[in-house]
Every structure is written in C-alpha cells, then in structure tokens.
Nucleic acid binder design. Sequence first.
DNA 1: GTGATTACTTAACCAAAGTCAATGCAATTG
DNA 2: CAATTGCATTGACTTTGGTTAAGTAATCAC
Lengths: 191, 191
Amino acid sequence: MKSEILKYLSKYTVITKELEIAISESTLFKSFKKGSILLKEGGISNECYFILKGAIRTYFLKDGDEKTMEFYTEEQPVVPANYGTSKPSEYYIECLEDTIVSVGNPQLEKETFQKYPQLESLSRLIAETIIIKQQESFTQFKTSTPEERYLNILKTRPNLLQIAPQHQLASYLGIKPESLSRIRKRLMDRK
Amino acid sequence: MKSEILKYLSKYTVITKELEIAISESTLFKSFKKGSILLKEGGISNECYFILKGAIRTYFLKDGDEKTMEFYTEEQPVVPANYGTSKPSEYYIECLEDTIVSVGNPQLEKETFQKYPQLESLSRLIAETIIIKQQESFTQFKTSTPEERYLNILKTRPNLLQIAPQHQLASYLGIKPESLSRIRKRLMDRK
DNA sequence: GTGATTACTTAACCAAAGTCAATGCAATTG
DNA sequence: CAATTGCATTGACTTTGGTTAAGTAATCAC
C-alpha cells in the first residue's frame, strides 16, 4: 500500500530510507464504498487524500446541474480547497468507485514537516509541478473545441469513460449531455 | 521596491525582521521596455519574476494566431513552466508595458531556502494557494459563456481592458476577436 | 420481476460563435 | 503627406452548442 505513495514520490525525488520511514510514520488508510461523499458543499474539511485504489470526483451544483470539476484516479492527491481552513467547502467530493486512500490532516502534516524538512521541500516541488500541469490543462481547454476536448480525454484518460457516466463527463468538458451525445455520434458517423 | 514583495508576502505570513533580511539579500531588479520578450518559444529559462510595476503576458502560437494564456500585473509572480529545467519553453513571455521586476533564479533560490527554511515553507504555502485559485478560475471558465467570462473580467480585472488590445483579450477568453466585438456590441445595445 | 427512476439518444428549433470577406480607422513609416 | 500596416467592426453565411421535449434503454428499489 505504502509502496504506491513511494512510487508516486519517486517521480519527484530519490527515495531514501529516511523518507520511507517518514512516510510509514505519517500514513493512515481509509476505505470508502462507491458513492460515499467525503465532503459536502458547505462542509468543513480536515482531511486530504492520496488515492491508492479507486476514483474520486469533485463537483458542485449550478443552475440545477452537477458541474464536475475534476476526476481523480490512482496515485493522485486530492486536497479540498478549504483544507486546513475553517471555510465551508464550495463543492462535493465523492467516490466514483470503492476507493482506498491514504489520509492526511494539518496536524500530522505539520509534525511531519517539522521532523522531516525534506518532505516539505518535496511538497513544494510537487505543488509547483501541479501548478504547471494545471496551466497546461487550462490552456488546452481554452484553445480547443468540445470535440477536441473529448478526443483528448479519449487519448489521455480513456479509463474515465469506464468509470464516469456521460453526463458527468459532459459537464467536465464544459458542455451539456446532449451535446456530448451528438459529438459521439458525429465521430461515429465520420468513421 | 522591496516593500512590494513584503506587502505580497504579508498576505501569507507575518513579516519578521529575519524575513526582511532574507528578502533584501535575495533580491535583484531588472526593468524592461514595453514589448520586450523575456522568453521565446523554444528558449531556455533561468529566471522567474515578481512584477513590481507594469504588466506581462504569456502566449503561444496555434493555427497562426497568438493564444494568450495569462495576463500578469503588479504583485504577481511569473514563473515559466520550464523554469529550472533544460526544456525549451512552449510559450512566449512579453511585457505589455514598461515593466520592473524582481528576478529570481534556481541557484539563488536554493541558497536562500537553505539559509532561511521558513522561506521554503512560505513558498509551499503560496504554491498551494495558487493551485486553489487556478482551480477556481478554471471552473469559472468552464461553467460560463463567453459573454459571462467577459463580464467577469470587466468586474475582476478591469485594468486589463486598458493594457491589452482586444484580440489578445479575445484569445484569453477562448474566442475569436470578431466574437468579442459582437459581445461588446450586444452589451452596449442591451443598455 | 416489475415499476420507477435515471441515463442516453434523437429531433426540431434557436442563439451564438466560427469563417470569410470587406470596410473603416488610427498609428506608423517611408 | 501618401501609403502601409494592424486592429476593430460589420455583414452574410455556416456550424455547433443550448433548449425543450419525447422516446428508448438501463439501473435501482422494493
């Protein structure tokens, strides 16, 4: 289990014995059934997650529809926007499948960073990398049509099509379910 | 000049005497004329910036058009995606006005973090905050129409209309210049 | 298993953005 | 000062997504 976390971290740094210990000391697991809500809109969050198995979706309600913000799958961190603050959440966090996560909290984080400062450096590095990746996604989204976005998902995260229903995908692509249906049809016909 | 940086940091932490010293030790200024290119597509970057005065735009070329990724104004950090790596940049960084920046580089950063570890904690905190803000912008973009996006800019960053020509704004909003022109007309007519 | 709910598709119609081309306007340049 | 260039606007036309509504398929609950 822990090995998933180390595998993830190894993309950013060399895994030392000390790091292994640090991780094993600060790791707590939880598992959730498909459909579990980890955080509700308006709720307060004291936890962040790292997905070991399963999938998570964040969404909120607008104009009576669910708007899917992001899908998270194995080896991805999920940190609520209000994590560590006392502000109510703007969105829901939900398990799309039976899911096992490693759980963090601000206390534990603080202690761990104090004990293993390299872990904080690593966190900074990861955060900066995430910023860059987000920028790329945003730019990609802005400069492409819904059809291109759908094709992009097909190519880069085909598993999403298995785990998420189309109307969730649609809102993730910034369109209505009917439009996604049409786009799929257009693509079929064109073949 | 340095006070702008401290003002920015004070949003995230308490400014101690030590922090002030750390900043003054690690601060180098540069100024650029309007239109200066700080980084070209394909170029390597060893610098990151903090804008003290002026404005910066990042963009790249696609389908023969400039696609504006972001506008940065006073008190904002600008970090090229390839900063500190040897990968060529995917985009241009350009000054929209005469601009004065504080400049950082990986060496300096490393030394400073070593000497003042609290600065690295602060960087992590800031990076995490930026991630959250980016997520919010992305979500806002996805769930709104071009017209709503334009109105949002009008409300949240009205100064952009002064410093950037409309075709740059249009690509920033993910639409064609003609469409932005029509949106503006529609809004005028409606009043 | 059956009925009810939810998800997906299809169609007709509308509104808005894309495309292409032309025009006007202002700033810049030779 | 005339010519050029770049930008914004406008118009005609096309394409595509949103909206509404209906029908079909799939899933869930009892």
